[in-house]
Structure formats: structure tokens, C-alpha cells
Nucleic acid binder design. Structure first.
Lengths: 228, 228
DNA sequence: ATACAAGCTCCTGCATACAGAATCCCAAAC
DNA sequence: GTTTGGGATTCTGTATGCAGGAGCTTGTAT
């Protein structure tokens, strides 16, 4: 059997998932959910015991979380949950905006009819969740839509970056992320229309304003919180 | 002494640099320089012996290099130097363009007279290197200029991303990176002028075209190589 | 009472040890 | 000659051990 394999059959069989990845995911989840609070000292031995593994995989997971920006590693002192600053949040939103804008432009350039169809499906899913006020579903639908737009663009490097940045943004803005849902999904509709027309200029511009709006919202919320 | 410390005195004293970082840097250097070839299997024990450390720091370094995209980690098989594809290179250039464009816009918005002065200094350094045909200095000057522009923009998150993406781009295009130097530094001059005028639109546009040109160049070089 | 110093405890960073999986090699069968 | 099976080898993944350093506590002096 020296002949080549098709792409489908060449897909590798399930490999034993390294423990470090499971640990890394678990810790990331704990950080995002707030169980592990910003600034908290992460003691390797404790985490290892809680997760039922040795210190080794925990260390490797912490390394990964460090390069991803979730934890800070102080030499000879260990790992601490990263403390997000307001400045950092603002910068992150700016970066996300340019990345998502580019993503929308690429999508508009590469979209095919079947992609457009799928986009409208995801849009509908979001509208349904909105009607039911199902917050969790709404957030999921929002993520799914944005992710799909990026995948239509076909730039994997970009997709990877957006995923990372997106996770951080969600961490910073868990509470306010969904409050402006209605308007957000109107914008989504217009965005899909632009992509369907193959109009990168317009698609990019809509996405830019769409993501910029998070920043405006943040300011409003903060002002409100300050005066309350 | 409970009083607050000044920013200067608060700077932490020299801490023992973790071995893993030294190893990580060393390996990255070996990969960029081509000593370790794409696709090559990196055996932990061998690396450890060569670098005079145990497997542990090597493993942690490989973790980091993995999340930074320099090596691929196949479960139960270990680390392999990442094999860059043409597709990936193209995608990377696209991402770099949007990031650098944003960087230029921010710089134009935030630049102060002393920044402009420094920019012209760096520009001069590049011109000098160009005149002497000092390739290494030229590349260094180019990096320094771009890096400084980003720092003027003041977005650390962006800076971090650009650094990562930039290193990869340099890896992919080591041979051709400097071939179009002359025109490149003319563009730099116009870019600085735009930043000095505080014109984000124009600065962004110049940077966009500036980085886009790498892509054009690549195509030309490849066509040439193919016909030769 | 406050500042300071010595000792202790805890934790990290690195090294080593061990078990399981993957690959490779070689011999035997078709 | 090609293929197949088994065994040895090699390497990863995980666990454990140990030395050094950081921070805390307690006791002491001012």
C-alpha cells in the first residue's frame, strides 16, 4: 500500500491527549470564570493536588498560560493570575477592532453562497436566543458568528490571533458583554449583507464600528458605575 | 519605611534569570538561524546535553516555543521545528500589514516632538547602513525604526503581537528581507513625515502600502526563482 | 510601641527516575 | 522481492527528590 491517502483517511487517529493541555484548559476556565482571582498566587503543589496530577503537568500548563498572557511568572516566586488594567483593556479592544475589521474584509472577498447561507443561519440563532433572553446561548451565538466570519476569510494565522484576543476581551468584559445585544445583532445583519455583496470596504467599516462600540459602551458603563 | 517608592527605585533588582528562558532564547536563535531545520525532530535529551542542562528546562522552553508557533508538539512524539508553508507566509504578511498600519496610525496620533526627533535619528541610522551596504546593521535599523514607531503608539498589547509576528516574518523571509532596501527607506521618510504632521490616515496608508510591498516582492522573487 | 534581625517554613526551579507508547529493525513467511 | 509480525530500542510524559531562595514569624533592641 504505497499509494497516497486521501485527506480524509489521512486524518490522524485520536492520540492520548497530553495531561498538560487538560490542565491548561482547566486553569484557563477557572481564571475566566473568576474562581481564581486576579493577583492570586498559584501554588503548584496545591493546583496539582486539586486536579489530581503531579506538579510537572501543572508547571507546563502554567508556562503555556504565561505566554498566552493569563498568568504572570515572577522568577523564584511562581505564578500569579494576571491582573488586568484598564489601560490594557483599552489596548486590547483597539487591537481586536483592527483584526476583526480585516477579518470582515477577507470574508467579503472570499465568501461563497453556501457561506452566506450559514451566516444567516447563525444570525437567526442569535435572534432566537435574543428573543428568549437566553444569555448563555446569545454569547455563544455571537462567538460562533464572529468565528465563522473569520473562517470564511481563510486566514488561519488571523483566526488564531482573534481567538486569543477574543478570550481576553471576554474575560475583561464578562459582565457587560451582552448588555447591548439588540443593536449588536442589527449590526450583524448589515454586516452579513455587505459580505454577501462581496463589498470588503463596507464589511470592514461595519465591523470596525461594531467592535468600536464595545469601547463606547464600556465608558458609559463605567461612568454609570462611578456615579451610582 | 512605609512610604511609596518612586517608579525608578521600584524597578526590581536583577533576579536570577530562569534557565528555561535562556534555553528558549537559544533554541529560537538556532531555529531562526537555520541551524535547526524545519521539520527536524527535537529530541529533548540531545538538546539538554548540548546546552548543558537537564531535560526539564528544555521541556518548558519547548512549551513556550510551541505556543509562539516555532515548534509543533505531536503527542507522544515530541517536538518538531515548525515547517512554514507558503500559505502561512502569505497570511502572516496580511496580518502584519493590518497591525503595522494600526501602529502607524496610533503613532501619528500620539507622537510628540521628541519622538519625531528620535525617528529621524533612526532613519539616519538606516540611511548610513544603506550607504555602507552593511546588511546586518540595515536589518537592525529597520527593526528598530518599526519597533520605535509602535512604542510611540503606546499600545503594549499591539507591540507584543507585532514583535511575535515580525519574528516569524523575518524567519520566513530571511534571504529577501533586505533586497529592496533603497525604496523601503524612502517610504520610511514619508512615513515619519506623516507621523510628524499627526496625520493618522496618511501614516496608516503609507505603512499599509509599505508592508504590502513585501508581498509583491515575494511574488516577484519566487517567479524569478522558478524561471531560473 | 516601633524598627530590626535571626530563624523557620514554604515554595520554586532544576535534576533525576520510572512507566508507557511509538518507532525501528530484523527475521520469517508468502 | 514484498509483506508481516515480534522484539528491542528510543523517546516522551509523568512522578518524585533535593537544593536554594523568598517571605513570614518571632524575638530582641532601641
Amino acid at each position: 500500500m504505497r499509494q497516497g491517502l486521501t485527506a480524509a483517511s489521512a486524518r490522524r487517529v485520536a492520540r492520548p491527549t497530553p495531561l498538560r493541555q487538560a490542565v491548561s484548559d482547566a486553569l484557563a476556565e477557572l481564571i475566566i470564570s473568576g474562581t481564581l482571582e486576579p493577583g492570586q498566587h498559584l501554588v503548584e503543589a496545591d493546583l496539582a493536588e486539586q486536579l489530581g496530577v503531579s506538579r510537572q503537568p501543572v508547571r507546563e500548563a502554567l508556562q503555556r498560560l504565561h505566554t498566552d498572557g493569563w498568568v504572570d511568572l515572577r522568577p523564584a516566586q511562581g505564578a500569579f493570575v494576571h491582573v488586568p488594567t484598564q489601560e490594557e483593556a483599552t489596548q486590547l479592544l483597539g487591537v481586536r477592532t483592527v483584526l476583526e475589521t480585516y477579518s470582515a474584509q477577507l470574508a467579503a472577498q472570499h465568501a461563497k453562497p453556501e457561506h452566506i447561507e450559514r451566516l444567516w443561519q447563525l444570525q437567526q440563532e442569535g435572534m432566537d436566543a435574543l428573543a428568549e433572553s437566553a444569555t448563555h446561548r446569545l454569547v455563544a451565538a455571537n462567538t460562533a458568528l464572529h468565528t465563522y466570519i473569520t473562517s470564511v476569510g481563510g486566514n488561519d494565522v488571523l483566526a488564531e490571533l482573534i481567538t486569543q484576543v477574543g478570550r481576553k476581551v471576554r474575560w475583561y468584559y464578562t459582565p457587560i458583554a451582552n448588555s447591548r445585544s439588540k443593536g449588536s445583532w442589527n449590526e450583524h445583519a448589515r454586516l452579513i449583507e455587505a459580505i454577501a455583496k462581496g463589498d470588503p470596504e463596507r464589511a470592514g467599516e461595519i465591523m470596525r464600528k461594531h467592535t468600536e462600540r464595545t469601547r463606547t459602551y464600556r465608558k458609559a458603563i463605567e461612568a454609570e458605575a462611578a456615579s451610582a
